[in-house]
Nucleic acid binder design. Structure first.
Lengths: 259, 259
DNA sequence: CGGCGCCTTGACTTGCATCAAAAGTAGTGG
DNA sequence: CCACTACTTTTGATGCAAGTCAAGGCGCCG
């Protein structure tokens, strides 16, 4: 158990301040601009303080840093504070499948709840930061804080719903619908966070997008450029501007008259 | 809270016995042979009794009966007691996607947790029976029964992991791998329930299987018959015998020498 | 016994994967 | 600051797995 705790705890604390005042080194949940979409939703201020007490705020993750690996013993949930992450699983036969992209306010690590081991790898797509939430303490807290328990249920429920929609996308949509859908989903999620819904900076590679959507890199690239030629998108490498959200939306539904 | 109890309670009770002795009309959780794979895992006998008190045991569902509809207000979880069900969602553009098949001991309705409304339809594939678990009471109970809370977390976690594996299957597998995988999954689940892992009676149609796997009916039919020609399966309409589990397993991994 | 779903089988088409190569971008070190 | 290397993305040519279309068979139920 020690080896895991080691990597989970307070490394950054010493690094940053040289002292042990963990809580003051960073923004609290109460102050966090994400507390309306993150774990703390609807908690009162006393509850917020108690949650705060168990949460550790990490030093930054660099691009390519792993938060956890598939098979690691599950002890911690991670809330994205800034930046972005991807999670992926590797099947017995060695096939990698990206299972999600995570933005600030999203909670990662839930995949470990079922078996006590993470079933995914989680890796930073850019310079990022997370809050670490020790799961055992979260469980105990949620025993006395119904709202917190409900939030955990809700977050897990959202994950289930999201993945079910993903099944529809993967199972019965064309490449064009998949790519359009992916961009619209990013757009919506940015809007929910109060950010631009039309100017998107992709932190993942074309290969990541392709893998996530069950396509090849070439197909994703071609689709991006097809949308560009139709003036639906402007593309400059990783920077994408959605010129017309409505037309892009119309690409998602199967039947459309306009070619 | 009353309005919820109304729709959930004791309809069948009156039907069956004409009296109000709900609990005696059927097997309790403590007696149920599924209590090792269902909600009650690891509960002690006092806890079992308390869970029992909130669970309602339903009269039978006929094939085609809906347990709930997409959009219905979420108030109840359903544990399959006998028979089987499918759940499916309908996207804005009208595309149906089957999201799961449920066997005895499985819990349905979790998709409603996130938004307070079911995001799926749930329909019986054959003559079946369920236990109804009022969600609000389950929430309250799990506040005082840590093991129960953990079971709910675990069940939701399993659902997440299952769906992530499904994403791999849908995104990066051939039709043959999908069909083999589907049959092996049914086989394994039957084995977990102490039933034959080689003799499978399909309660869903070819169309259901095709939809679930992101294929067409024709492709599923062809694959079944290809496996039959190779002597991996024996097929008689809805009855399937897996003649060689190992060979079928070898069909799932992408690279294999045997053609 | 006749009609209606469900399933199978065959012929044909196509969307996307594959293969290949060029162009662009980023990181490194002299 | 530029040259070199390595990686990512784009673009084109070709092939194939699975979809579509169509017809026929089988089983079930009134």
């Amino acid at each position: 158990m020690l080896h895991c705790v080691m990597s989970d705890q307070s490394l950054d604390v010493v690094d940053i301040s040289g002292t042990h005042q963990r809580k003051r080194s960073s923004v609290t949940c109460a102050e966090c601009r994400l507390n309306k979409i993150c774990l703390p939703i609807a908690l009162n201020s006393e509850e917020l303080d108690r949650l705060d007490d168990v949460i550790q705020r990490d030093r930054a993750q660099e691009k390519g840093d792993y938060l956890y690996h598939m098979g690691d013993s599950f002890k911690t949930l991670y809330a994205v504070r800034s930046g972005s992450f991807k999670t992926y699983m590797v099947s017995e036969c060695g096939v990698e499948q990206i299972t999600g992209f995570y933005l600030p306010g999203d909670v990662m690590g839930i995949d470990g709840v079922a078996q006590g081991r993470y079933t995914n790898h989680a890796v930073a797509l850019e310079h990022s930061a997370v809050c670490r939430v020790p799961y055992s303490q979260l469980e105990s807290l949620s025993q006395v804080m119904p709202t917190l328990q409900r939030n955990i249920f809700r977050i897990m429920g959202c994950e289930i719903t999201r993945e079910q929609k993903m099944m529809t996308l993967l199972g019965s949509c064309t490449a064009e619908q998949k790519v359009a859908s992916f961009l619209l989903s990013l757009s919506r999620r940015k809007a929910e966070r109060g950010l631009s819904s039309t100017n998107i900076h992709l932190t993942m590679s074309r290969g990541d997008i392709a893998n996530y959507l069950g396509l090849t890199i070439e197909t994703v690239s071609r689709l991006f450029n097809r949308f560009k030629k139709r003036n639906i998108l402007s593309i400059d490498n990783k920077s994408i501007v959605i010129n017309d959200l409505d037309i892009l939306s119309s690409c998602v539904s199967p039947e459309r008259e306009a070619v």
